[in-house]
Amino acid sequence: MSERRVWLPRWLTSEHPLPWLFPVTSLLIVFGLYPVLFSLWLSFFKRNPATRKEKFLPSWNWEKMISDERVWDAVQVTLTYAFIALFIQLVLGLLIALLLDTDRKGFGVLRALMTLPLVVPPAVTGMMFLLMYDSSFGVISNSLYSLGLLSPNTPILGTASTALWGVIVADVWQWTPFMVLIMLAGLRALPKEPYEAASIDGASAIQSFFYLTLPMMSKIIALAVLIRGIDLFRIFDYVKVMTDSGPGTATETLTAYAGTIYFKSANFPYASTIALATLIVVLVTSSLFIKIFKVKF
């Protein structure tokens, strides 16, 4: 105490929380709060594409968004994408984690290899799958052709009914390992004894899974769903690289639509409005989810 530099104001000494909180707080303000507030500010202007002038009309963009059918299409695509990808990743992730949750030799290596897709940049993943889907030399397309499951007349990413699935597969490839990691961490931490007690009580492996593993893992599963769900709702890179929202707007998600308006139409206020709306939906949904499923961090 006596060594405290007395000429410094108290809030600048190491005993005060402020100096410790300052760096991260300033980062958050500069890169988090400021852009959001700036977008909000932007969204209150009406842009005239011809004169490139902006006029303060607070409700203009918001009203436009509500009546914009493309927005509602994008919402539908985003939700479809997020739910399907999340479901597949969750189930696959849990299954793979169950298989890898063993002390047998060699599985440690498998567990490590499992994480490889996570280090590939999403844009590269998109490119990779773009090549694999290519209708003349893509390995996936050609395998499907030769199996007779797909006709060369309907390329995966070029057909409205399959394009979204094509993108989802890339997302699943990249992000299932993340689910596996979280699930494995959870599974490995589960106590062994209740399983022994359950088998004495007459439970089969399947019954143990449903009566013990799932309930004991519920918190972790909820956490994984939350993290991935938020991420999936903001899907942008795979769509941008693989289909660029096409064909038509078949794979146009909310963020992709906002991007299109921003970069192609240069209507910054409207793009900001859509981006903000996405943020609001994510915030509300995830808060509700946290409340309902009592997720703990």
């Binding site: 004894e193 209740p194 007690a197 007459g202 089969s204 009566y211 004991m216």
Partner: peptide, 29 residues
């Protein structure tokens, strides 16, 4: 398999089902 031996066992470290009430623990089998 243990589940088919028709035995009951009390474990040294209890091995209770942590997420089930006392009633459900006892009713499980």
């Amino acid at each position: 398999h243990a589940k088919d031996r028709n035995i009951a066992m009390v474990f040294q470290n209890y091995a209770l089902y942590a997420h089930m009430s006392v009633r459900k623990n006892m009713a499980f089998s």
